[in-house]
């Protein structure tokens, strides 16, 4: 079920006062109020002219600075936020329609930043069951969903289901929160910085978990600050800057634009950045996108002949 963004614009100011402001602009006052962006308190537009489609089964990465509109963008995907301009279509149907939006809620699972902060129930079981119960499922179905949700995040149902979620470690709490969303059996999983604040071990485990979920056929949209993670996991990457779409394409295509990304204060993955600098200093390195292994292999190929020649020379002497 593709999610299509059609010329979406969003503003924090309610449409009425926006009209008032627009009139003022027409009268020649407050003209400077336009064109202010990002974290500026006077900012009017959080998103502007955004068009793209989340395709079935893809892994889409979203990156951009704090205040670039990432969080606002993904909250359009399950109808939590409605565009001020343009349309968001889920499976070809406009989400402005309440019946469509209600259906989308269960097909599009949204995991917020620090999802463990939203845990509330007395037991892990009750917390995970919250979503399925809201869907009006029977007790048996709810039970099946809870078991399924917990097992898909790698937690042991027997061991944990009667515990209080607040007794668990931070990493486990986050898994429970994940399970609560997965128990609704969404088709699309939207993640807002799912590994923020985790230590390296937990971070790696979580990314592996997300990768596994995607491989089972789930469409995944992930917001992240880590270009390395995006390059490794995503089919496509969407880069936002000041509420607009800056780049959209495969990691190869996006991270070839090191200069453009730098101009808006974003980096490219470390191996790619090093490869680009080395290219400027006389290495050929002609792949589109480098990871550590690829870079090591190409560097070794390039350096081996001249090193061999040097050893030969040294041998002759």
């Amino acid at each position: 079920m593709p999610i299509e963004f059609d010329q979406v614009g969003y503003t924090y100011i309610d449409p009425k006062s926006r009209k008032r402001k627009a009139r003022r602009v027409e009268r020649g006052q407050g003209a400077s109020e336009r064109g202010k962006w990002g974290t500026d308190p006077d900012a009017i537009w959080a998103l502007r002219e955004i068009s793209f489609t989340v395709e079935d089964g893809e892994f889409l990465g979203v990156c951009g600075h704090t205040g670039s509109g990432k969080s606002t963008l993904i909250q359009h995907m399950n109808g939590l936020v409605h565009p001020a301009e343009g349309r968001v279509l889920f499976d070809g149907k406009d989400m402005a329609d309440k019946a469509v939006a209600a259906r989308v809620r269960t097909s599009c699972g949204m995991v917020f930043q620090y999802p463990e902060h939203q845990l509330f129930a007395e037991t892990v079981y009750e917390d995970v069951a919250f979503g399925p119960r809201n869907m009006g499922l029977s007790a048996d179905d709810v039970d099946a969903r809870v078991r399924e949700g917990l097992s898909s995040v790698g937690l042991d149902f027997e061991e944990l289901h009667e515990k209080s979620p607040f007794e668990l470690s931070g990493g486990q709490q986050r898994r429970v929160a994940f399970a609560g969303v997965l128990a609704m059996r969404p088709k699309v999983l939207v993640l807002d910085e799912p590994v923020a604040g985790l230590d390296p071990k937990a971070r790696r485990e979580f990314l592996a978990l997300i990768k596994g979920l995607h491989e089972t056929g789930l469409t995944v949209v992930m917001v992240s600050h880590s270009m390395e993670d995006l390059a490794e996991l995503c089919d496509r990457v969407l880069v936002l800057s000041e509420g607009r779409r800056l780049l959209l394409g495969t990691p190869d295509e996006v991270f070839a634009n090191a200069e453009l990304l730098k101009s808006v204060g974003l980096a490219v993955p470390a191996p790619q950045a090093l490869a680009l600098r080395l290219r400027e200093r006389g290495f050929s390195l002609n792949r589109g996108l480098y990871d550590v292994e690829g870079l090591a292999a190409d560097l070794a190929d390039e350096l081996a002949p001249c090193l061999a020649a040097r050893f030969e020379e040294a041998g002759k002497r």
């Binding site: 090093l274 006389g282 390039e302 001249c306």
Partner: peptide, 13 residues
Amino acid sequence: EIEEELCRLNSIR
């Protein structure tokens, strides 16, 4: 550091 190291190796050829 690694950038300088690689450029040093490369310049020897």
